[in-house]
Amino acid sequence: MTDLVLTVTADDRAGLVSRLAQVVADRGGSWTTSSMAHLAGTFAGVVLVSVPADGVTPSLRTRGSGRRRHHGRRPRDPAAAGYGG
């Protein structure tokens, strides 16, 4: 399994989280944990998912257009990135 951190921003609307969860599930993945907020009518979320290596497709890395974009990135080691001890 490959861990990905997805960041999401979009105009807030019903079904957005369900749609994102379906994209992950369609690729055989699971939703590990998340943090979400609604700010001034905008939905913002950071989601940690695990997907099989063959489920990491370009469509999972970037979907949508405009403000509705999903980015997949591998989690970094905070120390290697220069954060913390």
Rank of each mutant, 00 (worst) to 15 (best):
R19K: 08
L39Y: 13
R73H: 15
W31E: 04
H38K: 04
R27S: 06
A21Q: 02
D26C: 08
D54F: 05
F43Q: 03
L4C: 05
G41S: 09
L4T: 06
A44R: 03
D77A: 10
P52Y: 08
A79T: 15
R67S: 11
D77F: 09
V24E: 02
A53Q: 05
R27M: 05
L60A: 09
V51K: 02
H71I: 13
S50M: 07
P52D: 06
G84N: 07
T57C: 00
A79P: 00
G15W: 12
G85K: 08
V51H: 02
A10I: 11
R68V: 13
P52S: 06
A81I: 10
T7G: 02
V5H: 03
L48H: 07
T32A: 13
H71Q: 06
V46C: 05
P78Q: 08
T32H: 11
P52V: 13
D77C: 09
A40P: 05
D26S: 12
L6H: 03
T7K: 01
S35P: 00
V51P: 00
R27T: 08
S30K: 03
D12T: 11
T33N: 04
R76P: 03
R69C: 10
S18H: 13
A79D: 05
G41P: 02
G29D: 03
V47H: 00
T33Y: 03
L48P: 00
A80T: 15
T33V: 13
L20K: 03
T57D: 03
V5P: 00
S18Y: 13
R19P: 02
G85N: 09
T57S: 06
L48A: 10
P52L: 09
A40Q: 12
G28N: 05
R69D: 06
R67D: 10
R74F: 12
S34P: 01
T7L: 05
A53D: 11
L6A: 06
A25V: 14
R13Y: 09
H38A: 11
G85D: 14
